[in-house]
Design a protein around this nucleic acid. Structure first.
Lengths: 337, 337
DNA sequence: TTGTATGCGTTATCAC
DNA sequence: GTGATAACGCATACAA
């Protein structure tokens, strides 16, 4: 069926070794040999079997990208950049959705039935500290964390400064004269790093602005979808002293929150200013356009893939901590440019 | 390093054959043998090497999903469902982005350097008829087309009725009393099937409503992103006789068009009613919420994966043509429920 | 029911 | 610089 190295070797009257050399670009091959082999390759339309190459070399040329849900715009934007960055370095990308299923995450990391299917993992889901500990104990596969814990430098880690970014977002609202600044996206238990760090940054900004901390202004979000932002904002607006500004931990939450403000008969930014994080394209076209904290996703993806590649080629290289810059982008939802 | 069948066999004092039987669930294995082998597997923490399995069996357990851009919400939603549906049938999914690069598409289909990396392809990008012809000539890998040409039943094909769906969308606008109904998303040349069919459906609805066909009301869109919808709508609104309704071939185009209407100082749906297609979650939270044509994406994904699986297991099975139902969902952008 | 041996298509180690 | 050949880890035809 499929043409193999041996077929080419026979056709060109040389050994498989020589054909392999030509195919893999081994430098020490005489010109006439190379020409003969290449002619045979052309004639037989030969293409190497990657599966056999893998078995032999142990490398698969595939990276896994693990995300909670690929249809969350932030993750699909990330996936796009990761796929492109990986392609540039000769990798293909397999995407796994954990769907917030911790068991699924563990399986993916500790081997499960899927060992050796990829050379490394870009791990992006929310994850708890104890899960990371378990990973470190059991897993041996090269791993780069995207976002979340830096975890004592035991894993490569590429992310923004969550605390700082959240601080800047809330500080932006304060700088506009808003006094009752709410936050949406905290997580109830002390489980995940991202919401914790963002809450901390928010609180620091509140303190620095000389505002009162008000626990009732901090709202959890079970997930980071529009519906969660809508529900949380609706509750906030019903309270005795509603906020005049809301900092949402993601743009998607913010878009849901905006819709809730309109549904309550109020307007953005006049009654309530809103800021998100992620700089989704959707926010640029929303009405009003959404002020947000932008993080250079292409850069983040590129750095993550590079880190992972470095770890794959040299498993002993020290873990790196990469922080990608962020910046507030003022738009209409906080009163313009 | 890694434990192999042979290691397990030695540990359990049996042959590799027996271990293999146990691992692969071969029924005729005596109880004590099975127990001994399983104990050894447990003790050595053995896991089969999927790459070796593949080389041996020729099956990879991987499907490729080819899309133009994974960060277009329609395709990320599709990817989510495809990944889930594939997981249910024991497949993993590799995502490829063609980025509207026809050369890239051809490579993916006619083999390129990537042969035998997956068992089948779900092919979703826009594609021309001549490209499909070339595919049929050269490619041998199981393939299911999502959307686009049915192509004479030579490929399995899962899609909505594009012509009918477009007709229903435009007819919905006409039924609301709109007289100057524009369309955004046509493609200039006679290249792709989807825009052609949608244009045809639009024209049929215009005719049926007794309205005049007006070529200037049909606007092309280079891509299907918000920016394209914005640009096209802006032009339409500047014309001497601007439209009172716009049918956009995708929700993303519609969301861009809505923003353009606001930027022009007009309102939706009072001045211009807008309808899209795809039923993105984004449209449900937009202001005003976006009327759209919904197609059951989970169902489409499931059927596509099932078709592909059927073709993989039986390459001789006749090509199937599956049409997934659609329906108009009225929302605020056309004047409510 | 279980063991032995061969091959899937490569790469890489030896010789020459 | 090139040729023969042994793995890589698994599944299976054939034998027992």
């Amino acid at each position: 069926m499929a043409t193999t190295l041996r077929d080419v070797a026979e056709h060109a009257q040389v050994s498989v070794r020589t054909v392999s050399n030509v195919v893999s670009g081994y430098p020490h091959v005489s010109e006439k040999m190379r020409a003969r082999v290449e002619a045979a390759i052309e004639a037989l339309d030969y293409r190497p079997n990657p599966v056999a190459q893998r078995l032999r070399t142990g490398r698969t040329g595939v990276l896994a990208l693990v995300v909670p849900e690929i249809d969350l715009p932030y993750f699909s934007a990330l996936a796009r950049e990761v796929i492109d960055a990986a392609a540039l370095m000769g990798y293909r990308v397999m995407i796994d959705q954990t769907g917030h299923d911790h068991e699924r995450e563990r399986q993916l990391l500790t081997g499960g039935e899927r060992t050796m299917l990829f050379d490394g993992i870009l791990f992006s889901p929310l994850v708890t500290k104890s899960e990371l500990l378990e990973m470190e104990r059991r897993s041996t596969i090269p791993l780069v964390l995207l976002g979340e814990y830096s975890f004592d430098g035991r894993f490569d880690h590429v992310a923004i400064d969550n605390e700082g970014a959240a601080h800047d977002a809330a500080a932006h609202l304060a700088s506009l004269g808003r006094r009752r600044i709410a936050a949406i996206g905290a997580q109830p238990a002390e489980t995940y790093a991202t919401p914790q760090e963002r809450t901390a940054g928010y609180l620091r900004a509140v303190d620095e602005a000389g505002l009162d901390r008000d626990e009732s202004m901090i709202r959890p979000a079970a997930s980071y979808r529009r519906a969660d932002g809508h529900a949380a904002a609706t509750e906030l607006l019903r309270s005795a002293e509603p906020p005049d500004a809301i900092f949402c931990f993601t743009d998607l939450l913010a878009l849901g929150a905006m819709r809730a403000v309109f549904d309550a008969g109020l307007s953005v930014p006049e009654d309530v200013a809103i800021i998100g994080m992620d700089d989704l394209e959707e926010g640029r076209y929303a009405r009003p356009s959404l002020t947000t904290v932008s993080l250079d996703t292409p850069d983040l993806a590129r750095q993550a893939v590079e880190r992972l590649h470095a770890r794959i080629t040299d498993p002993e290289s020290p873990a790196a901590e990469v922080t990608v810059p962020h910046r507030v982008i003022p738009r209409e939802s906080t009163g313009g440019h």
